[in-house]
Design a protein around this nucleic acid. Sequence first.
DNA 1: CCGGGAAATGAAAATGGTTGTCAAAATCGC
DNA 2: GCGATTTTGACAACCATTTTCATTTCCCGG
Lengths: 129, 129
Amino acid sequence: MSSRRDAVHDTLRQSEGFRSAQDVYAEMRQTGAKIGLTTVYRALQALADHGKVDVLRNDDGESVYRACATGEHHHHLVCRRCGHTVEVAGPDVERWAETVGAEHGFTEVTHTVEVFGTCSSCSTPVGAG
Amino acid sequence: MSSRRDAVHDTLRQSEGFRSAQDVYAEMRQTGAKIGLTTVYRALQALADHGKVDVLRNDDGESVYRACATGEHHHHLVCRRCGHTVEVAGPDVERWAETVGAEHGFTEVTHTVEVFGTCSSCSTPVGAG
DNA sequence: CCGGGAAATGAAAATGGTTGTCAAAATCGC
DNA sequence: GCGATTTTGACAACCATTTTCATTTCCCGG
Ligand SMILES: [Zn+2]
Ligand SMILES: [Zn+2]
Ligand SMILES: [Zn+2]
Ligand SMILES: [Zn+2]
C-alpha cells in the first residue's frame, strides 16, 4: 500500500548495519526522496511491528533498525567501528535463557542478546609496516 | 568523599530491581533527603563508571541502575511485571559469544545479555480459587 | 580560627530523539 | 466527479538527560 514504507524498507536494505530513523531520513533526503521525518518514524515502527525489520537500542538509547535476511529468531554480531553486522544463531543461548528462567520459576521468558566486537577489516593494524 | 553519592548508592541497595534516575530521585525526596536531580544523575553515572552499579536500558530507552551483589561479570533475569531481579551466571553464553565473534574474525568481543520473564509471584493466577 | 582555591551541588535552561496534533494531500469506492 | 478514508508532514509538545553557571561546601596551609 504505502510506497513510502517500501522506500524506507529499501533504504534500510541498502544499509549493512543498524540505522536510526534520523539516519534513514537523512539518507533518503540526500538521494532526493520526498519524505518527512514523521513518516520515516512511522514506517520504521510499522515495519518493526510486522517483523520486517529488527530493532534495538544503541549506546545512546536511540532506536536503530535493520532489514535482516531472515525472519527467524536470531541475534547480531556488530562491529562497533564500522557497523558491519552478521546475523548469528545461538541455539545454546536460546536453551540457556529458557533454562535459567525456568530454574527461577519465571514464565513467558524472552531475552535480548547482542554481541559487539571489532571486525577483521577494522582490526587490521593501520600503522604496521 | 561524597555523602550524596553514598546516599544514592544506599537508595539503590534498598531496591530489589533496576531503577531509573528519576525513580531514585523521587524516592530520596520522599524519604526527606535533600538532593537535586542533577546530582542523582551524576552520582549514578559515577557509580556505573566505577562498576559499583549495573546499568541497562529499559524498553522505554531509559537508563536503569541496580546495585548488584557481585562485581563479577553476570547477567540478569528480570520480572517484567514487578521488576524482581535475579543475578545469573552463564558460562556457556560467555563462551558462545567469544566463539561466535572469533568465527567471524571479530576481536575485542563484548556482549549484552538480559533475560526477561514473569516471576512466580506475578504469574500466580489472580482470579483462580 | 581565617582565607583561597578546588570540588560538589542544584536550579534552570538547553538538547535531542521521539511522539502527538491536525490540516492538507493522496487514495479509494462508487 | 465526490464524499469518505487513509496517509502525509510541518510543527509543537514531551520528557529523559545534559549543560550551564552561580552558589555552597570542603580542604588545607598559615
Ligand atoms: Zn568493522
Ligand atoms: Zn535468542
Ligand atoms: Zn514479578
Ligand atoms: Zn556475559
